[in-house]
Design a protein around this nucleic acid. Structure first.
Lengths: 244, 244
DNA sequence: CGCCTTCTTGAATATTATCAAAGAACGTGG
DNA sequence: CCACGTTCTTTGATAATATTCAAGAAGGCG
């Protein structure tokens, strides 16, 4: 496990060069592993927050359920992500975590962040920045969800996933296997499965994307991004103010 | 200035007891002051992020504008809040900051956080938790905006403001002067001013709230909160994992 | 008092949701 | 290899909700 650089290290190393002690702290977070099945619920809203989870393999999403049973999907997680940063301030989970493929997670307790807080100010600053970025991306989705039409909302979501995958897979990626069904896509952007189906149909007819089985292929994603005023929040992180 | 405890200190002290050195670090953040007029734009999207801002007096909001000119209001800030945590990771501002009353802000550079990061792990952990909380509250609003009807969306927004004000004013507060017009309220929850007007009218008729000039009076806010599944994210912060 | 901004109200329009049913894709077991 | 059941997607008709547009009312401020 130590020989192959982990997704989390790869993800974090994009932004700062981790020195030996910092890399060791990150490695601690990935020490344990646990396997989960597709559709398995990792943790439910209201559960005591025992652990955060680094994603080693698989896709997951966080969600909340409304009183009438409808669901809001908050964010989709892929390998290299850390799930649960937003629970740092709460004793009880604010959201559900659900697998949408088989997955391997590395659970670690909140207290595992203490070494970083006490001895690795640069790493802590990065953690703070990444938490801030999640916030910005949530705002982006909210802006899209509440102000764009169904077609552009779907496109926004698909482009956001693309830009995330480009960080850890390939910066020119233009296709990916999407393990969410249309009901789930709709839950992420405030639409029904029916509206998602119609929106994707329209995007396909206008040549914006094509589908190959469950794989989404974005045609000229750069043009699509401009068209709907998409901001790629993954491109870079401002590290100029970090300590050291 | 040092004699009267600042709003920021008061806000942070809710959650941890600040020792002398920690309080000194926080005081550094509030050393400078700058006055702004109602409607003044403190900083625009795309501007270089020179400073974060602690709010000393007044109300402000952050927003983004869509290509077609419509606006999404992201969050409303009141005395004791820190504006700009979500810009920590970016060199250029992701949002506009606008005053909705006359205001006094304490600008401080991102680098002013270095002492906290290096020497005040508990304070840093709190900062991280508060950033995470902003994230959770943004998700709450998104959930409300994309899944609730106009009436409940407006109520959710008004209740969120109430629960924020209860932190620094009075925990039993049931009314406040709201310096946002209906267009701005709509921009915060994805509605037009017309829909907001109709929603408020309905809330008033059903006895949920009443208006006295620009003051909003919430009747039985606890019942309203239950009715629309409102979560008060300000109530407490999990500090059990903090260092020391 | 008059102007400006904000709020209210109603009618017409647009968009999405809801409901229902049929079709496609996929895996399983015979 | 095919039949079957399940899940997911597509399509069309209707209903619900919010938007748009426009006009008038209510306040606040000089």
């Amino acid at each position: 496990m130590a020989s192959e650089p982990s997704c989390l290290v790869k993800n974090l190393s994009q932004y700062i060069d981790l020195d030996e002690s910092e890399e060791e702290i990150v490695a601690t977070l990935e020490r344990d592993e646990r396997e989960f099945d597709n559709k398995q619920v990792v943790r439910s809203r209201g559960d005591r927050v025992e652990h955060l989870h680094a994603v080693k393999t698989g896709w997951l999403f966080t969600s909340t359920t409304l009183p009438d049973g409808r669901r809001q999907i908050i964010r989709v997680y892929v390998p290299g992500d850390v799930i649960g940063l937003c629970d740092l301030g709460y004793r009880f989970a604010t959201h559900d975590i659900t697998c949408c493929t088989d997955a391997v997670l590395c659970p670690f307790p909140k207290t595992a962040l203490r070494p970083a807080l006490s001895d690795a100010p640069r790493l802590t600053a990065l953690l703070l920045s990444l938490t801030a970025r999640e916030q910005v991306m949530t705002v982006d989705m909210q802006r899209a969800s509440s102000r764009m039409n169904a077609r552009d909302r779907v496109l926004y979501l698909l482009l956001q996933m693309l830009s995330r995958l480009r960080v850890t897979i390939d910066e020119n990626l233009d296709r990916y296997d999407l393990p969410l069904n249309q009901t789930q896509l709709g839950d992420a952007i405030g639409l029904t499965n029916v509206s998602v189906s119609k929106a994707i149909g329209e995007l396909e007819r206008t040549g914006c994307l094509s589908r190959e089985g469950t794989t989404i292929v974005l045609n000229e994603p750069a043009a699509s991004m401009r068209k709907i005023d998409f901001s790629d929040r993954y491109e870079h992180v401002d590290t100029s103010w970090f300590p050291d």
